[in-house]
Design a protein around this nucleic acid. Structure first.
Lengths: 222, 222
DNA sequence: TTAAGTCTGTTGGAATTCCAACGAAAGCGT
DNA sequence: ACGCTTTCGTTGGAATTCCAACAGACTTAA
């Protein structure tokens, strides 16, 4: 277990928990390390899961197969991040997605019930753990809501303005830089890249904003 | 407080907690009841909040004002439901939305920290409470992800098929009924109602599905 | 330096969606 | 039965987006 401490102490789930307490905590949680080859299925759609996972090494994908058999990727989960926590913690009866490994991976599985029920020793870091878990799921929630607000707009122009406006608010300034390149931004907004580029140019021409590479400046009523 | 027990015992947050324990629990949480007139602001954008709310009576709205001052409604929160929990539980520094009352309302405010730290009495229902909270936020997460998966599709046809396909999976049958009327469905999918109606007709004509009012049947590779 | 590859903006025609308007059908109260 | 309202499907032109292709700027490797 020691070899994973480096990963675990950077994981959001264990934020604020002392490295020396980690060992105790993990046994208290009955955490289990499992090894997978590339392309194995960790969680099967239709199953009832009570445990969620943390990626110690490698990568897993959360994928969904629709009614017609088309597969779509819901998330890529890298080292230190969680998967399946929403399903394990909600009282969903059956898992609607598959979790598969994209590379050989080592995964730490944790029982959701062990997390919420405070242990016999009533360890102090246990409540910190619960806080972290709630914080992670809540933050995901906020980001998802933000994305929905933006992608629900009908036109590329509105989507761009909505997105850039939230970035400006977040940066607390009319000048800010984007974490995406154009293709990624287009994917995030669910629009076509070239059409988006054209719309960006039009917005610039209309005097609503200015940009150079990823440096943007938004004009308008601050 | 007694007059609110009827609401509280039906609230998801207190599911599985005995009515007789509620009183103890609420004092343990330092829960506070506040009264608001119509149109008052409960939480201000930019504030740092540590408490979330439950609507005891009336209704509140979560609204967002963008960079240009346009207001959009993120959620209507009715009796028995929570608001602000994602922001209070995550470590967001500043609230990006306003919470306002749409009618005269009575609200129960609960400190998020009190929730996660198990009380001195180590009451049994406390861990149940935490489970419920995690379950609520997780379930919201799942529903948001589902919605994103669907609205990210580019065409009305794809959105419809994606949505109907998940409903079919959920119902476990190719025949199912929708919880929306046409206008609500169009809003959910972020498309125009009449265009959606036209596309539904085309799908029927193409032999991919059949419907009568809200009764749908989806054909294809089961 | 050349060559290959990536990222970005531009363009024009095809496809799709939006919008406004209309009519048919169903529900509701008088 | 009669209006009144709401819901739903249809239609046609306007507006928008998609798609494919291309060119320029820049990066990287040989």
């Amino acid at each position: 277990m020691e070899k994973y401490l480096a990963v675990l102490k950077t994981a959001d789930l264990f934020k604020g928990i002392d490295e020396s307490d980690l060992q105790t905590l993990l046994s208290c949680l009955s955490a289990e390390v499992l090894h997978y080859d590339k392309g194995e299925t960790v969680f099967f759609s239709g199953a009832i899961i009570k445990r969620f996972g943390i990626v110690l090494s490698g990568q897993v994908q959360v994928v969904q197969d629709d009614y017609y058999g088309n597969r779509s990727i819901l998330a890529n989960v890298d080292t230190g991040h969680l998967f399946g926590e929403s399903f394990a913690c909600s009282d969903m009866n059956t898992l609607p997605v598959n979790v598969i490994t994209t590379t050989a991976s080592e995964l730490l599985l944790i029982d959701c019930c062990k997390l919420t029920v405070s242990c016999a020793k009533a360890c102090g870091f246990h409540s910190r753990l619960i806080q972290n878990m709630l914080s992670i799921v809540s933050m995901k929630n906020i980001l998802l809501t933000q994305k929905i607000e933006i992608t629900a707009k009908r036109t590329t122009r509105e989507k761009l303005l909505a997105y850039l406006s939230t970035e400006a608010k977040k940066a607390g300034s009319s000048r800010f830089s984007l974490p995406f390149n154009r293709q990624e931004l287009a994917d995030y907004l669910s629009v076509e890249r070239s059409a988006m580029s054209a719309e960006l140019s039009k917005l610039k021409h209309d005097g609503l904003l200015n940009f150079h590479k990823n440096q943007f400046e938004l004009y308008g009523s601050v």
